[in-house]
Amino acid sequence: MSKNDMCPVCKTDRYLSPSLKFLINPECYHKICDSCVDRIFSLGPTKCPYANCNKVLRKNKFKTQTFEDLGIERETDLRRKVLSVYNKKEEDFRGDLEGYNKYLEEIEQMVDNLINGVDVEETENKLKQYEVLNKQQISANNTRKDQEYENFIRLQNMEKQFKLEKLRLDKQMKQEEDKMVQLSRMEMIDELQNSSVEANTAIDNMRQSILKKSSARRKQRDDLEKKFLLEKQAMMNDLAAKEANDETTTIPFTPFNGDRELEPRFNLLPTYYDPIYNKLVQEDSIFNASGYKIEKFFARSINEAFTGLDCIIEEEKAF
């Protein structure tokens, strides 16, 4: 029997009580069995029963251990605590990657401080201060997170329902098919026995009704599939619309906050008179080798001639 299977407080072990469960408290992370927790802490907060541990523990803070390694358990707890306050997402920074990175770095620094016990008090204070200062934003972010989760669950539920419905229809169809096979077999036997017209018509009627039913089922299934897809699409659209509403700028990005003028202020000729450049480009194959086009040079020059022509510095700069 290993040490892990014995409660260090009451010395009960797994051998005697197989339902032994261990709980820990995030104050000190000492393992105590659940019966001890009940026994010691039901009357209110008390000191940890471990020797040399003076932490005061409360019963409602006890929880089952998730990770075997208590170090990791502690780290995840601390991280959760910090992240519940520092809960911005990358989208909140609106493309300011550096700002977001700084924010992440800050979080990591705080978590690290808390884990390694560096400036714990200062870090705690900082956390509290941040919480007070950004109360509204934090709660807004939390509700948003909750809503996102809710949406996700809704989508999943819908999918599940759809699958169930489909399965049921499929099953029914299968049954009816089986019935058809059976009927045809019966018909054969009937015919072999005595070819009475009555029996035949009865069976025929039956078959007809089954066929009708199965085709109806198939239609139903197709409808269901269509409906599901539509619903899913609608939900996605809804989400997208919500997100778009959050982002106030729905205008597509243009480098200069607007499109260039539609009508250029000049018309380009196919060719211009310039004996020097034209000759140079025609005769020297080096110019043309890399796809150089003198027309581009002409266009650029003329474009520059109209870049700033109507800017009157004397007036525009006069305030």
């Binding site: 205008i251 607007g258 499109d259 003028e261 109209f306 700033g308 800017c311």
Partner: peptide, 20 residues
Amino acid sequence: TKRVSNDDLYRRSSQYRVWS
């Protein structure tokens, strides 16, 4: 939508902003 003319582009150049 606003159209950006060549003059607007010039107004964004450092030559216009800083050295005019």
